[in-house]
Amino acid sequence: MMGDSLLKIGWRELRASYGLVERNFNLVKRYIGWEIVFLFYTVVNTLTIGFIGVDQSGRGGERVLYLVAGALLWGFLSILFHEVSESVAWERWEGTIEYTFMAPIRRLTYLGGVCLWATLYGAIRTIVVMIAVAAFFRLDLTRSNLLGALVVLLASSVSFIGLGLVAAVLPLLSPERGAQATHIMEGIILLVSGVYYDVSVMPRWIQPLSVLSPATYTLKAARAALLHGAPIRDIAPELIILLAIGVVCVPLGLIVFHWGETYAMRAGKLKRSG
């Protein structure tokens, strides 16, 4: 509104962002059965990956933590990517896309709320899985730089949110296949980033792709912090790259999303059936 101060506008938009967080929290409560099943599956999946490490280096070996850290980090990053990139597809599936998109809020507010929820939800799920897996394998984290690993997670969140924003436009452009395309993008990131192996084992022609993936730097830095207790200054190059990717990807994601929304409004795709 014309006479509103910036503070008032900011407060109103922040409340709207919180509305999205609250809405998603309510949805999680309503789908609690599925949440428990997914959480159980994630814990079991992480344990099976940990057992590969046990098989290779024995219980308590470094390989276990290497693989478990990969599974946990990928779990967090993929939740972040999913929640952001599939936000539009979810609205379309529920049939609320028109209502949400004609609400008097800035698109930044909507996407900010989605990202805030994705970060909170991803962090809580990852912490729960981490506690369960650490207890199961009796992982020794006393030499780990947990604060450093957390800083890596925060820095990588920014870049993954940026990638998610770019991918979120796909369901706007193609209601039928956009959501499927986001899975292809996610699969490629999983393949090239060295989640469960060092990128050097991949064929030479794939390796350059790992340089472009923010997950490569996340995994490298987080493993250094968790496995070797590397201080922040040692992982600073990876942190700087992650932040740089975020600085490029977030505005790029917002621009691409704006462009996609305008296209959808022109082509009549901003509706439940597209």
């Binding site: 999205l20 609250e22 049939g95 896309i97």
Partner: peptide
């Protein structure tokens, strides 16, 4: 009806209220 089907009327309207400030 464009609603989150699993959410109640109250929850859907609370979301709307936040969007409308």
């Amino acid at each position: 009806a464009s609603f989150f089907k699993k959410l109640s009327a109250m929850e859907n309207l609370s979301y709307a209220a936040r969007l409308y400030g």
